[in-house]
Design a protein around this nucleic acid. Structure first.
Lengths: 352, 352
DNA sequence: AGGAGGTGCTCATACGTATGAGCGCTGATG
DNA sequence: CATCAGCGCTCATACGTATGAGCACCTCCT
């Protein structure tokens, strides 16, 4: 390696000078579009020689400006990644995203500058896509949005501007058809009901969380549909709005009014177990219970439940995004990803 | 928002047209260097109006090309981040990096494209900085290097080319003075020895890992120095080269030849505990033991040990890098970060 | 009246890369 | 010998932004 302009990285022009060719020749050699190149081996060697000598490496900014690609995939999380990664929330998604990005030769940008930063925004650390008129996202060719987006307006604008992105998880935005990749809770819930039916259960119950977010809606419709389709009976007081678990209903369950219960979260399932125990009833001996949620850590509980294929979803998100990048017109719609059921010890055949 | 050129993001030129000014005026308004701007409020408003109307947002590639800054900080790990994050290795570092990046308004690039990717490289998933002549790192203004770099040559080249980076952890490269940020194992080890001395211990032992890496060297010199300085006695067979823990030496320990032992890892400490137990000796009743390593998970063991302030180190790395960016000539040297000792239940005053 | 100094912009250019168009040359073909 | 294809390049330009230089106009002062 020899002389280099002080403080400046060498450019193709420098290489060209050294190799005794034009800058455009250098460009052709390096980003060798062999089809249109028409540069003989000997010249190529001279150029590579000069490249080595100067330690030339392409300027990504210039390259990005010329082509319309960076090979950068953005990851926007609406909160900080790592504290949550620790709690395994974003973690598995990121795992899949990273894997797939590596496999396809992309780098990842974590948009941290969009946070409240110095002085701006609230303590909670919520991140905005648009911040004082600057959308940092378009630094990347496209982005994956992850987490709970509080501001539907931002999503709408992003979509309107034609920026390529996919949203992990369900988020309906009126007037915008944002590409989402969604765990198929609906089918999974239905399958759980089908399985209970196969095991002879006819009278089911459903215990819901208090939240009204889209993902829960899906579970609820899946359950309701399957119950209807299979001609089963649903006797859930909570199904139409109650928050806690009504003790009157629990008494009925204890009396045998219901043989299987579908529950929206492990938290509620644990509570259910206690309350039934207080009434002298055991799971699964007296009542079968399946859970419609599974954080990885919950596996220890041995609940029969569905599993959200987080890593897989991360990988899929990357692929989807790449499809969109390759063909910008193709606005791919939403994609549902099957959620496998994992067997536990809380569901058995009905005994009567 | 109205007409926009099909498939193209609006540029300053478009805004200028709409506002009836020149492109350079737009640039001055937007990246308002108030000092040289000389644009009256009325015009500014017209421009902002046009910006809003078109939904203009700056093109980061062009901007990056013009200024020499992206506000992008690279994070290069020599292996995949997330599988390890899970084991809490990279995790705490990244936590600090992310925090500090957010606070200072930088985005983070995770260099994933540098991995073996499609077809290239080994199964192990090792990542290279230089890959077919392209150094992706310079996509970012500067980078933090994290983990075990196998290839010193890459570091040397990176340094030679004047790219701003800091290396977390110690890595000596002949001929290159790479800026490192290093847990101060040496002082910490010395402090542990001092503490043992204060507690009345005079005859110490040291049990070493088999590895010969720089970080262990630091621990060893710190220990040796302190022992010398305080006039203590060291009777460690392993100190000059043995791998396992010699049973002859353990017998001596059991006979009371040594009252306190410093160990390089929790793994070895656990083993030590067992072997002493087999000889009827207990920690700390008969022998005090301190550990020179602490993965977060190890805290459960209640060993007296040092703690590596990983999050803090991540934050410091970001700040260091920024200093280098602000003043490119200033090649900051290495920085040692103090490692606090955390008290456990395995060290007590000597009893005799 | 004439100059000085300030205001409100515009002009031109540079950053580094990629690429369509084109130019001069050589060798083959009719 | 004229023509023509193909080779091995070079020229020129565009991408979008930032910025030093400078121009036209106005106001104020002497």
């Amino acid at each position: 390696m020899t002389a280099r302009r002080r403080g400046k990285a060498p450019s193709q022009a420098d290489v060209a000078r050294l190799a005794g060719v034009s800058q455009s020749a250098v460009s052709r050699v390096i980003s060798g579009n062999a089809a249109t190149a028409r540069i003989p081996e000997e010249t190529r060697q001279r150029v590579f020689e000069a490249v080595r000598e100067l330690g030339y490496v392409a300027n990504p900014a210039a390259r990005a400006m010329r082509k319309q690609r960076n090979n950068l995939l953005g990851v926007h999380t609406f909160e900080r990644v790592f504290p949550h990664a620790h709690e395994d929330f974003y973690f598995a998604f990121l795992l899949g995203i990273e894997e797939r990005a590596e496999e396809t030769g992309f780098d990842l940008v974590l948009f941290t500058s969009t946070g409240p930063g110095r002085g701006g925004g609230g303590e909670r650390g919520e991140r905005k896509i648009y911040k004082d008129g600057t959308n940092r996202l378009n630094l990347a060719d496209g982005s994956i949005l992850l987490g709970v987006s509080t501001d539907r307006g931002e999503l709408a604008r992003l979509w309107y501007e034609g920026y390529p992105f996919v949203h992990i998880g369900r988020r309906e935005v009126p007037g915008a058809e944002i590409p989402q990749i969604i765990p198929d809770y609906r089918t999974a819930s239905a399958r759980i009901v089908e399985r209970l039916a196969e095991l002879g259960h006819r009278r089911l119950g459903y215990v819901r969380e208090w939240m009204e977010m889209e993902p829960y809606e899906d579970r609820r419709t899946g359950y309701a549909e399957a119950v209807g389709r299979l001609g089963l009976t649903d006797t859930s007081p909570g199904f139409h709005g109650t928050h806690g678990i009504e003790s009157a209903w629990l008494d009925e369950v204890a009396r045998g009014a219901v043989t299987a219960i579908v529950v929206e979260s492990v938290r509620l399932a644990e509570s259910l177990r206690e309350q039934l125990a207080a009434r002298g009833r055991k799971i699964p001996d007296d009542v079968s219970v399946a859970v419609l949620e599974a954080a990885p850590a919950d596996l220890s509980g041995q609940w029969d439940s569905l599993v959200i294929p987080r890593t897989e979803i991360g990988r899929i998100a990357v692929d989807r995004l790449q499809t969109m990048l390759d063909d910008p017109d193709q606005r791919t719609g939403s994609l549902f990803v099957p959620c496998p059921l994992i067997p536990g010890t809380t569901v058995t055949a009905v005994r009567e």
